[in-house]
Design a protein around this nucleic acid. Structure first.
Length: 905
RNA sequence: GCCCAGGUGGUGGAACGGUAGACACAGAGGACUUAAAAUCCUUUGCCUUUACGGGCGUGCGGGUUCGAAUCCCGCCCUGGGCACCA
């Protein structure tokens, strides 16, 4: 039956033909524009793809297919992110080796992607764990190393006791490992880093040059965390005896003992009443040498405590400030007053200088600390009276409260921070505005030579080493003398040895360290050396794969510049928002390094980025039985759909959550294709919601698409007998009757809408505009018993255009319909329909007629009617006359082709 | 706490500052059928009216405008991100 959509009867046939014809092989013909469309590099999990993953691949496929038909050379590749923890953990669990496991899983992925008709060029595919790929990952590591951007140092790192490896900052969420969920511990071991901080400013600046969702850009800017401020040196003094305003006779200073602090509010320096060092700060050792024994004991105890406390506890928002006084004092350079030096863990060792000048009057954290430990607070700005409304004790008499505040602010537990209030108690800066004082004090610090204005970033260097087997080996040899030698390019790749046992040891070294053949090497000078046994985290592999796709079979180099110059940047990159600060930041960083090395010609890898919404599956839970405990944040116990079906409905709670195997809420593409068809699945994925929105997936949505496709089949079936392939040549000579005119108008309006919608990722309205076309044409057909030649030709144009417009979304059906029309070959090779504005234009428009902005009637006018015509026609409407009767028209607003609005009074 | 996104019928969602609810789903009624499925047609924001019509409506409260779902200000709620970053 050719008058309905019966997926089983033709979809597999077309997939076989596409494969036979090698249809999706990347075209690289001269004289065509290029388009590089790509999805995020997936890790092939054993669970296979769900329809949720398809929501990523189908829209990109639609865009790429349209670009092919529009004549572009299109690069639309797919590969697999195979190295890394998830693969290794899975392999350990299954007591197998990751390599064959990954081969099997990626084959499943490929089969599923093919099943839904995604037009990947598989001839360019690779896995990041193949030596022919990671050879070049190592080569890029070498490039970074030679440029001083890869280095090893001892570091206190995030140690995941479950996965037995260190993790990057980006992989830690609220003190827990994002992947394993384990509480992260501190460990002090040698680690490899990439100096991404070197590129902090460029990574911020170049965000302005890419077309990405603003939310992702903002997240990256926040993550990089640029702050402008002043860094200056505070001298350590011997005693707390103040206090001379005479520079020469200032507080005696301990020679050469000093520390740097960074502040964004140098204007508040007169309010500094203490200084705080992070517990790990190096100066503490020096201080311990001269302060009393009782201080040393307290310091040591506090440092121990700080080391052992977990990240979660340390940052808990209910936690009170803790700290100890060191017994030493520093000198406030503005007042020359001595201020006590404290140690507290609310100051991070890893940000800024690991030490701060504390201004309790102007900083909530400093204030809490000062109140708890009885340190002076000097007000540096005068709060307005409204400020005191928040304090019950002060609300009745704010004037008196202000007086008390100026005397001693400690009574009021909220710091007063303002960018507008002028300064007080600030010596020469009194009465100045914040910006004025910042300017003048910044200059003062620089003139005095104790510091400088500085930009500080929150971003830290990228921790790349992992103490795990399944990763790209770091191509470094440690010589006897503890020198680091880079393995020369001609000796790459450093291949991962085949081993039986690769489970992590947990002692902070990689299992590779136990493999003598791997570890023991001769160094470049022929002496005995030791191979680096850490591997690179998976994000290294995914930081350049888009370059390899440009030139995947190159054995001489990672890529030829010619190839990347042609294809890069990726014109449209599609994937989930969860990679906002990891992959997307790392890849940008590598690209900039490669640009600086002259290896690529663009600074940004991804010109445009689109994030699809998640697909949620209905997940059944049951109410907990008596005595059962619930997991954190859960209000029920997860059950299988089968269990749910057997329970009384009132005992089952349904929740929408992201499709995952463990939740048992996955719908696979196989199921969907089997029950409804690949094209029905594709259309529903596009239609169900805007691309960026989350979707609550219900299978029966696909039956609506089956109906729609069936209407298309029926329409084509009805029209195929009178289809005239040469319509374009003949149609120009025909006089168009009303129906023919209408059909052409609908056709061209749809061509315009579809083309625009696909380009702007509005796939839901793309599908609905095709539905509208079909509905409208069916109406015309119903009303015309006799079809004129002009109408037949217009319908030929319509039906051909419809099939081609449908092709990106429902390629199997489009090719089947194309064949029904007697057209040879594939819609893939056909030209995208051309839009004609004159044909799309309406000749009559509906004008809204309003009185005082309220819609009262409508009228029809010819397009291009004069304003006077609008007004007179509107006034002539009986309903409108009723509203205007006895009123004065004060104003008439006319928007030609849209509306007339009478303002009456 | 800070930052981002979003709140529109029974549901998913449309809508360059200009006729709110396109397109679908679900519901109701009907045609075809011995019957059902499938398909097709009509109808469906809420209130009011026999009807014509009228009123109210895009989270809440203000504002700008001839005109606001859309722009501005202040809130509330939901989702996501960051979180003692000086």
């Amino acid at each position: 039956m050719a008058d309905r959509y019966e997926a089983a009867s033709f979809e597999a046939k077309w997939r076989a033909r596409w494969k036979e014809a090698d249809l999706f092989k990347t075209r690289e013909e001269t004289g065509r524009p290029k388009f590089y469309g790509m999805d995020f590099f997936p890790y092939p999990s054993g669970a296979g793809l769900s329809v949720g993953h398809c929501r990523n691949y189908v829209p990109t496929d639609v865009l790429c297919r349209m670009k092919v038909m529009q004549g572009y050379n299109v690069l639309h590749p797919m590969g697999f992110d195979a190295f890394g923890l998830p693969a290794e953990n899975e392999a350990i669990k299954r007591k197998t080796h990751p390599a064959p496991m990954i081969d099997q899983y990626s084959a499943t992925y490929r089969r599923q992607m093919d099943l839904i008709g995604v037009s990947f060029d598989w001839s360019r595919s690779f896995k990041s764990c193949e030596p022919s790929y990671y050879k070049w990952t190592q080569w890029i590591f070498g490039l970074l190393f030679k440029r001083g951007l890869a280095y090893q140092k001892m570091a206190s790192v995030n140690w995941d006791p479950v996965d037995k490896t260190v993790l990057a900052d980006e992989e830690i969420v609220a003190g827990r490992a994002e992947r394993s969920g384990a509480l992260v511990e501190k460990k002090w071991i040698p680690q490899w880093f990439f100096r991404i901080t070197e590129y902090a400013q460029q990574l911020i600046d170049d965000l302005d040059t890419v077309d990405w969702p603003e939310g992702i850009k903002t997240q990256q800017r926040n993550w990089i965390g640029r702050s402008e401020g002043v860094q200056f040196t505070m001298q350590v003094s011997d005693s707390s005896t103040p206090k001379s305003h005479d520079l020469e006779a200032a507080t005696p200073v301990r020679k050469a003992l000093a520390f740097d602090v960074f502040t964004t509010r140098i204007d508040t320096i007169y309010g500094v009443t203490f200084a705080v060092l992070a517990p790990e700060h190096q100066l503490i050792e020096e201080i311990a040498k001269f302060v009393g024994a009782e201080h040393v004991t307290a310091i040591r105890a506090y440092q121990e405590q700080a080391k052992s406390i977990s990240e979660v506890d340390r940052t808990s928002d209910t936690r009170e400030k803790t700290g100890v006084f060191t017994g030493a004092y520093a000198v406030n350079p503005a007042t020359k007053n001595p201020v006590p030096i404290w140690i507290a863990d609310y100051v991070m060792a890893t940000y800024g200088t690991g030490a701060i000048m504390a201004v309790p009057a102007g900083d909530q954290r400093d204030l809490e600390f000062a109140i708890k430990f009885g340190i002076d607070v000097i007000p540096i700005q005068q709060p307005p009276l409204e400020f005191f409304a928040q304090f019950p004790v002060a609300a009745e008499d704010p004037q008196a409260a202000l007086a008390r505040y100026l005397e001693d602010p400690k009574e009021f537990p909220t710091a007063y921070i303002s960018k507008d209030a002028p300064l007080i108690n600030s010596g020469s800066q009194n009465g100045r505005s914040v910006p004025e004082a910042q300017e003048s004090l910044g200059l003062w610090v620089e003139t005095l030579g104790i510091g400088e204005r500085k930009i500080q970033y929150r971003l830290r260097d990228w921790l790349i080493s992992r103490q795990r087997y399944w990763g790209c080996p770091i191509p470094i040899i440690h010589t006897k003398d503890d020198e680091l030698q880079l393995v020369p390019a001609n000796q790459l790749p450093v291949e991962l040895p085949e081993v039986d046992n690769y489970e992590p040891s947990g002692d902070g070294t990689s299992p590779l360290a136990l493999i003598g053949d791997f570890v023991n090497v001769t160094d470049l000078d022929g002496r005995l050396g030791r191979r680096e046994t850490d591997t690179m985290g998976g994000f290294a592999c995914s930081s350049w794969y888009f370059l390899r796709f440009c030139d995947p079979d190159n054995f001489e180099a990672a890529w030829s510049k010619e190839a990347t110059d042609y294809w890069m940047p990726v014109d449209c990159y599609v994937g989930g928002a969860e990679h906002a600060v990891m992959h997307l930041l790392y890849a940008r960083f590598w690209m900039k390094v490669l640009f600086d090395a002259g290896l690529v010609s663009v600074r940004e890898p991804f010109a445009r980025l689109q994030n699809q919404g998640q697909v949620l599956g209905l997940t059944p839970y049951r109410k907990p039985a008596e005595g059962e405990t619930l997991g954190q944040g859960e209000d029920g116990i997860l059950i299988t759909p089968a269990e749910a079906a057997e329970m009384p409905p009132e005992d089952v709670i349904f929740r929408w959550s992201r499709m995952s195997k463990s939740k048992g809420n996955v719908v696979t593409p196989e199921e969907a294709v089997e029950s409804f068809g690949a094209d029905a699945l594709r259309l529903q994925l596009l239609f169900v919601a805007p691309f960026t929105a989350d979707v609550q997936w219900k299978n029966d949505g696909m039956s609506a698409q089956v109906r729609f496709l069936s209407r298309v089949f029926k329409l084509v079936d009805e029209l195929k007998a009178e289809f005239e392939p040469a319509w374009e040549r003949i149609l120009g000579f025909e006089e168009l009757d009303d129906n023919a005119r209408k059909v052409r108008r609908y056709t061209h309006q749809t061509i315009r809408k579809v083309t625009e919608d696909i380009d702007r990722f509005a796939f839901n309205t793309y599908v609905s505009s095709m539905m509208i076309l079909v509905n409208n044409v069916n109406d015309v057909l119903k009303s015309s018993t006799q079809r004129s030649r002009a109408l037949q030709l217009s319908l030929s144009e319509m039906v051909e255009s419809l099939v081609l417009l449908l092709s990106p979304a429902a390629p199997h059906s489009a090719d089947e319909l194309w064949e029904m029309l007697g057209q040879g070959g594939f819609t893939w090779n056909a030209e995208w329909p051309r839009f004609d504005a004159a044909l799309a234009a309406e000749d009559m428009v509906t004008i809204a007629v309003q009185v005082n902005g309220k819609l009262r009637d409508t009228l029809m006018l010819a397009v291009g009617a004069a304003n006077e015509e609008h007004e007179s026609a509107a006034r002539a409407l009986p309903k409108i006359q009723g509203y205007l009767d006895g009123m004065t028209v004060r104003k008439t607003i006319i928007v030609p082709g849209k509306l007339v609005n009478f303002v009456v009074g």
